[in-house]
């Protein structure tokens, strides 16, 4: 039997009508990318999985309030982003660092000078640095590169200005490039 592929709105309509098992389609569609974003924001896989479960349940409970003018992904990622921030705040991590202002990214530069020599693979090195970006910068990188979202959509999710999102994106790239340059990856990367 050929399985008809449903779009997000059709799935939501079906779930609202009472076919709650159809919600699995939405979960399977978004779980890994949302999980990646949460792991990078919270820096902990167990917390990320727990938060993601809560997010899917929150979304399920609020499905009837979802206004179909915007995309489900935007709406869902807003839940994920806000829940992650709440978790960060609740676990009393240093939110000042996590929600750092633009200049605070420089602390990462000093952090990576010590263990860089051990990392030979540039790609792996960049990936390891992304894992350590502050929460909001990680969120921007994930949404932009994993979800292929526009800066406008990301600004809607983060309830921030488009300019601010672009600044975070550009600063992240600049910072990564600067670290690579400082640590003699220049020849390889350029």
């Amino acid at each position: 039997m050929e399985m008809k592929s449903l779009n997000d709105i059709e799935i939501i309509d079906s779930v609202i009508k009472g076919n709650s098992s159809d919600y699995a389609l939405l979960i399977n569609k978004y779980k890994n990318k949302a999980f990646s974003m949460l792991v990078r924001m919270l820096k902990n896989q167990m917390d990320a999985e727990e938060v993601l479960q809560d997010c899917f349940i929150k979304a399920y409970n609020s499905l009837e309030n979802f206004k179909k003018q915007s995309k489900f992904s935007t709406w869902f990622y807003r839940i994920v982003y806000n829940t992650a921030l709440t978790k960060l705040y609740a676990t009393k991590r240093k939110i000042e660092n996590e929600m750092a202002s633009i200049d605070d990214l420089f602390f990462l530069e000093s952090e990576y000078t010590t263990d860089l020599a051990e990392q030979k693979d540039t790609s792996l090195f960049i990936k390891s640095m992304i894992e350590k970006l502050p929460a909001n910068y990680s969120a921007v990188i994930n949404l932009f590169y994993l979800e292929n979202m526009s800066c406008e959509e990301i600004s809607e999710i983060m309830e921030s200005s488009v300019t601010n999102v672009k600044v975070m994106l550009h600063r992240s790239r600049n910072m990564l490039r600067t670290i690579l340059e400082k640590n003699n990856y220049v020849e390889e990367i350029l």
């Binding site: 979960i27 779980k31 999980f35 999985e49």
Partner: peptide, 23 residues
């Protein structure tokens, strides 16, 4: 180059029974 590397950013996978747990 950084932009190209970021495009290859890895995806983490949830536990196998994640969907079932939520349902």
């Amino acid at each position: 180059n950084i932009h190209n590397e970021l495009k290859k950013i890895s995806i983490f996978e949830t536990s196998i029974n994640f969907t079932e747990v939520i349902l």
